[in-house]
Design a protein around this nucleic acid. Structure first.
Lengths: 304, 304
DNA sequence: AGCTGACGTTAGCAACGCTTAACTCTCTCG
DNA sequence: CGAGAGAGTTAAGCGTTGCTAACGTCAGCT
């Protein structure tokens, strides 16, 4: 006897949604149904898969392993269905793209416009995802394409059977209020800024990890006073004189910079790199979109 | 809504067994149950998957496509289960090997003996399979290892995510009765033997395809009077003076050759090549067995 | 304390899927 | 040529599965 694909789907959905209740809503079931399916799955395997806690569930080690394999199973199931439809003469016309916020503003629109022109019949869907999430959704074919990034110093997620192409390198700039004392120098070292109040992402966010790594190399520990994921918010805080931050070049290019001073860090050249991730043997639509994204990235790079 | 893995399993079993009734027996169900599952699968997809004929079923084009993807799904399901067991500390101890008859006699026993010595706790299972069958069983994890062959001129099956390693090249010899007129010459061409009665496999059997290809190159058409898959039978027929045949070297080495004359074909050097096929990222047991098989193959080759 | 939100449990009911038993079709053999 | 065997399908019956609904439990919060 073998595992049931339906139960695996439940586990994967619960893992993605973060709680049984949220997954149940997505799947149009009652939480009870999912809970029972999970319990049965755990009974079959003889081990716990999720740790039930108030405020949501977290996966056990076995659960994480099973989720990643479950995504592969779901992906194969969809591939099977798609292959039969292809035999019947149905061209795939759906393209689901996952992207992080900045890319969604600076990289995707241009590519999407060109794509609409080349394939007017294609049905596009977009999903916002913050790195390093989303790899599993490509494996399970919920996404055809994932645009993600990685700050240098943060390890890249392993790609099990996926393909990853670098789109562009996005250097990080030091941004401070225009009237800040350090704004006079063209370059400042992290050590010189040890007493500043920093603005960055929360614990574990790549953003924050990168800042921590850089500071550690400089022998200092930054004081993060404000935590936000959103670079627009970050810039507003800086403008208000509440702190300083490292902000990607690509974000700055599309923003009003009045009241801000943009400098380079001394000694190091931090950056984040943007990638596009898709399955091996991409369909025609996927390959076309990758090409357009690369072109869009090139436009940005050469515009520097 | 998506395909059901259980129904895919039914389709795959039916494809392998060649008929609904045979698959039902293997799965301990009634033919009616499988028939209903297949019907439902066809209804869901909106196309026929099997052609019902008296004396068995054959797959439609869509059916063949779905079977190959179904095998991938089943393989992922087993991989998922195995991965969880691995997290729980269970070492895999099962090794299922598929082999064709000659290899089962000349190549496998030596490797198997060494394997038993190195891994006494491993549970081995063997399955007889005639090439080019068996690739799908590796994908679906029914087999961990497939020992197969291919006569030159016969196309190799495509390997979707599998790895194939050549074990050895097995030259084909012309075998005729000891008192046959042509037995005097050390070499004879196929054109010289155009009027002989040949012994070979049935239509579509690689054996037969190879003979046909060689003969076509020589501008003749062989008259196949006796059809058999079994080389022992073939040799017995030759000994009885009923015909001649091409027989692999490896078969001849383990057989009593009295009453037979072994010669080489003039002009061509036909052969069959033996391969071992397994999944990417083989488990420790699989990798060890491959090594032993390669060593066993080397022993045979150098013993020439 | 009492409330809220999230999860687990139990009872009940609907749907699914298997078996039994008939039927169709084709090929085979006396 | 008609009986029989083999393969597959269809219809009816029934057990199992898996859902919902209502209730029970526990942690954190006001």
């Amino acid at each position: 006897m073998s595992l049931d694909a339906g139960r695996l789907r439940v586990l994967v959905e619960v893992a993605h949604a973060g709680s049984i209740a949220a997954a149940a809503q997505r799947m149009s079931f009652t939480p009870s149904a999912l809970s029972q399916q999970l319990a049965k799955l755990e009974r079959e395997l003889g081990c716990r898969l999720v740790d039930r806690g108030p405020g949501g569930t977290t996966l056990t080690k076995a659960g994480r392993v099973l989720v990643s394999h479950g995504e592969a199973v779901l992906g194969e199931l969809r591939a099977a269905e798609e292959a039969v439809r292809a035999v019947l003469g149905a061209e795939p016309d759906r393209l689901a793209i996952g992207t992080f916020s900045t890319a969604g503003r600076i990289l995707v629109p241009e590519a999407l416009a060109a794509f609409r022109h080349d394939y007017p019949a294609a049905r596009l869907s977009l999903l916002d995802l913050e790195p390093p999430k989303g790899y599993g959704l490509v494996t399970s074919r919920d996404l055809d394409l994932l645009i993600t990034h990685r700050y240098v110093g943060v390890p890249l997620p392993g790609l099990a059977g996926l393909r990853r192409t670098r789109l562009l390198t996005d250097p990080l700039r030091l941004v401070l209020p225009a009237d800040h004392p350090a704004a006079d120098q063209a370059r400042s070292g992290l050590a010189d800024l040890a007493d500043e109040e920093w603005i960055s992402g929360g614990h574990g966010v790549p953003n924050r990890v990168c800042l921590g790594t850089l500071a550690k190399q400089a022998g200092v520990e930054p004081h993060v006073a404000y935590e936000t994921q959103d670079y627009e918010v970050t810039l507003a805080l800086i403008r208000a004189g509440l702190g300083i931050s490292l902000v990607p070049e690509s974000v700055l290019r599309r923003t009003d910079l009045t009241g801000l001073a943009v400098r380079e860090l001394r000694g190091v050249r931090p950056s984040r790199q943007m990638y596009v991730v898709h399955r091996r043997r991409p369909a025609a639509l996927v390959a076309a979109m990758v090409t357009l994204l690369l072109r869009s990235a090139e436009t940005i790079t050469t515009a520097v």
